[in-house]
Design a protein around this nucleic acid. Structure first.
Length: 275
DNA sequence: AACGAGACCTGGCAGC
DNA sequence: TGCTGCCAGGTCTCGT
């Protein structure tokens, strides 16, 4: 479900809620990755949603509170989280753990069967939240470039695939797009990070950006469906080069795609295209 | 500092 | 049909 493009798609889908006033907050099951703060109902009732931004895979919902202060709610979808924007109230399903009801009647509803996601209160300065201060640059910003990558992987002997998934180095590269980016960059995912040449760093940075951009475009195109049908359309519409394609022919050279475990995660590659 | 493994949790599916 | 084992889009924490 939520890799970076889906989180961004989710954020955009929530934009109609901007400037709306909160009627109430409903927490049905507070035991997410961290407990959902119990004060949210009190804090957010009568506040106004004034901002929706994203940092890494966190959605930052900024509220203007009734006491005149500002505060930000951090939302993370974990592995199985999904946020719906309901136009009218509907009976909550089994894993619908958290709602924000607006005076318009619309509802932001978080569903997360595995409960690896999070709903956290970050106060007025979310950039100082401990979960956010340790994050590396956004992959699509210019600060994430070949020089930066090479500089930061000099001392890393881990497989490059694991390294690009490390959010301290760069955010937003999940298990699917790590494999896909490395295929496009023609780099074997098992290569020790510190063995990469500058040319390879250039290719990898370029392909991480283009892979995510392509996925963002695909996610954006399915926005209506994504929110209308609780089906996660769009994300799966994409055709992957290697992810989940074990033993199927490489789309470039026809050699069977291979799967290995790296850092306890399935990793897919073509050993001909990615020597 | 860097690494690997474990942890959190539920659901779906293949195989018996 | 039911059970068991394995897998899944994330990422923090801990021991080495």
């Amino acid at each position: 479900m939520p890799e970076l493009p889906e989180v961004e798609t989710t954020r955009k889908g929530l934009l109609p809620l901007l400037n709306q006033q909160v009627l109430c907050v409903v927490t049905r099951n507070a035991s997410m990755r961290w407990p959902i703060p119990s004060h949210l109902h009190q804090t957010l009732t009568s506040s106004k949603l004034t901002g929706l931004t994203r940092r890494a895979k966190y959605i930052l919902a900024k509220f203007s509170l009734s006491n005149g202060e500002n505060g930000t709610l951090l939302l993370h979808l974990g592995m199985s989280g999904r946020i719906q924007l309901l136009e009218v109230d509907e009976p909550p399903q089994k894993h619908d753990h958290f709602d924000i009801h607006f005076t318009s009647g619309q509802i932001l509803r978080l569903r997360d069967p595995r409960r690896f996601g999070a709903v956290l209160w970050a106060g007025a300065a979310p950039e100082n939240h401990t979960l956010l201060t340790v994050l590396g640059p956004e992959p699509l910003e210019d600060t994430f470039n070949a020089q930066y990558l090479q500089q930061h992987i000099r001392t890393r002997t881990m497989a490059i695939k694991n390294v690009i998934m490390d959010s301290h180095l760069v955010v937003g590269v999940g298990n699917i797009y790590a494999s896909e980016s490395l295929f496009r960059a023609k780099i074997n995912p098992q290569t020790s990070a510190n063995q990469l040449s500058l040319a390879q760093c250039r290719r990898l940075v370029t392909e991480i950006k283009s892979t995510l951009q392509d996925a963002l475009a695909a996610g954006g195109s399915s926005l209506r469906d994504f929110f209308g049908v609780d089906g996660g359309i769009g994300y799966f519409q994409q055709e992957y080069f290697v992810y989940g394609r074990t033993q199927q022919p490489c789309k470039v050279c026809n050699h069977p795609i291979e799967m290995v475990r790296l850092g306890q995660r399935s990793t897919f590659f073509c050993k001909v295209c990615q020597p």
